[in-house]
Design a binder for these strands. Sequence first.
RNA 1: GCAGAGGGCCGGAUGGCCGCUCUACCCUUCGGGGUGGGGAGGAAAGUCCGGGCUCCACGGAAACACGGUGCCGGGUAACGCCCGGCGGGGGCGACCCCAGGGAUAGCGCCACAGAAAGCAAACCGCCCGGCCAGGCUCUGGCCGCGCCGGGUAAGGGUGAAAGGGUGCGGUAAGAGCGCACCGCGCCUUCUGGCAACAGAGGCGGCACGGCAAGCCCCACCGGGAGCAAGACCAAAUAGGGAUGGCGCUUGGGUCGUUUCCGGCCUGCCGUCCGGGUCGGUCGCGCGAGGCGCCGGGUGACCGGCGUCCCAGAGGAAUGGUCAUCCCCUCGCAUCCUUGCGGGGGACAGAACCCGGCUUACAGGCUCUCUGCCGCC
Length: 153
Amino acid sequence: MAGKSLPAAGPADASASRPELSEEPSRRTRIVRLRKRPDFLKAAKGARASVPAFLLQMVPSREAGSDARCGFTVTKKMGNAVARNRIRRRLKEVARQVMPLYAEPGCDYVLVGREAALTRPFLLLLSDLRAALARIQRASLSQNPGGPKSSER
RNA sequence: GCAGAGGGCCGGAUGGCCGCUCUACCCUUCGGGGUGGGGAGGAAAGUCCGGGCUCCACGGAAACACGGUGCCGGGUAACGCCCGGCGGGGGCGACCCCAGGGAUAGCGCCACAGAAAGCAAACCGCCCGGCCAGGCUCUGGCCGCGCCGGGUAAGGGUGAAAGGGUGCGGUAAGAGCGCACCGCGCCUUCUGGCAACAGAGGCGGCACGGCAAGCCCCACCGGGAGCAAGACCAAAUAGGGAUGGCGCUUGGGUCGUUUCCGGCCUGCCGUCCGGGUCGGUCGCGCGAGGCGCCGGGUGACCGGCGUCCCAGAGGAAUGGUCAUCCCCUCGCAUCCUUGCGGGGGACAGAACCCGGCUUACAGGCUCUCUGCCGCC
């Protein structure tokens, strides 16, 4: 029911990428953890969308057929190690629930934690991420219309 | 019962749903999947000490420099830690606190105040003598401002500290000048103790001030760096070595005196070796190990037996979320002990591993002991 906010390019290449995998009815994108520093630096230069609990960064990285990747950044400004761990873990859980349904394959995402991520109700975090994903995909479409086409190739 | 002292321990519980990671077994279409099991702390923190481990350096040892430690005995792998004593200080007491070797090895310092701060001295005083303005007087004398000379350290005042304290005697006034007690110093002394030290005895009228966390002296200890240590596997690229082929009709260099001719190097392609970057694997989880019982010891701790295997990530797993319960708190209601609703539940996250120390910490449990009050 929430899938209608996605761009039209999404379902096409998602089904084309894994035709042989399985015949599950819902379209799910596999999410891989982003771990290398250069990837984080690249994502920081891409499109961004801000909500109270975090900042979402996105860059179309590689071929459209591959998985989406997602990383997390929580700086030392956010507090001590316990607070940082908790922020990252809540964001991880949000990403785990939302990204497979709404993320664009072949794109790298980075969630930069903010202090509000510590206390914001979890349901709001979920809708925050859906909204941010929608915004960021609209933004990258309008700013670079040739982008998704070339990624489809 | 009230007030207090010293330890020990815990630091949310249970259950859904959805995950992460390690591991054993099974399945697999080699992508992965299933089942079982493990998965943060008392401080994981600060990184302040002590070790293990690894690499580097080094002939043994000593000395010097530098740094650390500093009552005695014990514990320990070791320590700056711990335990038990000793000494000093505080508290009615249980107990608590202490950078606690040497000040006749030497140097240095002792601010302010004060007359004087380390070697004796004397500001105000006190006392004696002389001179003397003057006064009193029974014409014997007495008192005496001031000045000079001398004796004192009782009293005053300063200070963190002023050359033992208190009392009696003594004296012109005083003073260990004498005596008693306390204190202090010394001793081939005695007693107890492994010792630090304590007690007794004798001698000495008795200062030898303090600071060594200023330098220093003495005794003892210490090589350096750290898991990003270190070991192994190993793309790409640059450059290196070996070797094979081609080229060497053309070049350049070089060797044999020169020409011819020939060798070698330089060029291109390939193979191998070495190297070690990104990356990967190991190091890396059986240990100065946990628990229980027994024994020794005042204790730290030690010994024996049994039993258990108990986190291993790497932009960094150990969680997210919901419900119920528990505790605290606020508001409303209330049949007065319950109901409803809201908020909150500390400090804090393993990163090679141990032993300590230090610091942070909502709330709570428990043991032993002390003082006072009450009751029997």
